[in-house]
């Protein structure tokens, strides 16, 4: 499988900031939450961006590929049909589970870093890949807790996953910061252990620290520590793309443009 074409610097498209995304300068690509789209009724703003030639990448949050439950064929099919409707070069979801025992957590939950859990994840990812029209990239999540009896570091776990499924990686440096802050993950070791040649793109997002816990809110400004981690990553590899995620408490266009400029500065070594 080949490498990912250069994507550049982008921003997460959300209905609330559709006009902002359209008029921000230098948006090289956008990402859409696949579950929010209906192939028959794509938002006009998305169609406009496609007409301009801006790549639109579907990002899924509900495949729950780390679940012990079998893969939900309908969700995979929907993601694939969104990718085809948008002419997307790849799709993504997370290394996580959201459903178990008939319950839905409502948020991305970490999987145990055991051989058992890795075997299940690999089988699920292969099933999804076999039913998707384009390559799949998988993202590291921000976890608030850690399973006991982990047999692998997060970096080793992702490296094995890539090795066995040939998936791409979507590395979220804000999540990496969250895990370093909350769980003591060593971000440099993480970056050393993952196969950076399989990097599809990078997520950057804001968050806030409350009572000693960093929350990956996507509703606050990007912290300097997160940009530092982007710099660490950049010192190892030139990522095909970097995307800013903002999901709530939307700031002015100027502020978002400023965050994208800060990302560009880090990528150019001026961070």
């Amino acid at each position: 499988m080949g490498a990912i074409d250069r994507l550049g610097v982008g921003i997460g498209w959300r209905a609330e900031i559709d006009l902002t995304v359209e008029r921000l300068p230098d948006v090289d690509f956008v990402e859409v939450v696949a579950e929010n789209l209906h192939v028959e009724h794509l938002p006009e703003s998305i169609l406009l961006l496609r007409e301009r030639g801006v790549p639109v990448l579907p990002h899924a949050v509900s495949l729950s590929l780390g679940s012990a439950d079998p893969v939900d064929a309908h969700r995979v099919e929907h993601l694939g049909s969104v990718a085809e409707a948008l002419g997307a070069p790849l799709v993504s979801d997370h290394v996580c589970f959201v459903r178990a025992g008939g319950l839905d957590s409502g948020h991305l939950m970490p999987v145990p870093r055991t051989r058992d859990a890795l075997d299940v994840l690999v089988a699920n990812v292969r099933t999804a890949q076999a039913n998707l029209p384009v390559p799949l990239a998988l993202e590291n999540i921000a976890a608030l807790l850690e399973w006991p009896d982990g047999e692998l570091t997060e970096g080793q776990f992702l490296a094995d996953l890539v090795e066995r499924t040939d998936c791409f990686l979507l590395i979220d440096v804000a999540n990496l910061h969250a895990n370093a802050r909350n769980l003591g993950t060593d971000p440099n070791r993480f970056l050393d252990e993952i196969p950076l040649e399989r990097l599809a793109y990078v997520h950057v997002a804001g968050g806030v620290e409350n009572d000693g816990v960093y929350h990956d809110t996507h509703a606050h400004a990007v912290l300097p520590e997160v940009l530092d981690l982007l710099g660490e990553l950049r010192s190892r590899v030139d990522p095909p793309g970097v995307l800013l995620e903002r999901d709530d408490n939307y700031p002015s266009d100027t502020e978002l443009a400023g965050e994208m400029a800060a990302i560009r500065a880090v990528l150019a070594g001026r961070g």
Binding site: A68, A100, L103, S105, M109, D116, A117, D119, W147
Partner: peptide, 17 residues
């Protein structure tokens, strides 16, 4: 992958949620 792996994971994930 063994069915055992999936069953053990199912139990653990259900217990956590």
């Amino acid at each position: 992958m063994t069915d055992g792996a999936r069953e053990r994971l199912a139990r653990a994930q259900a217990e956590l949620l």
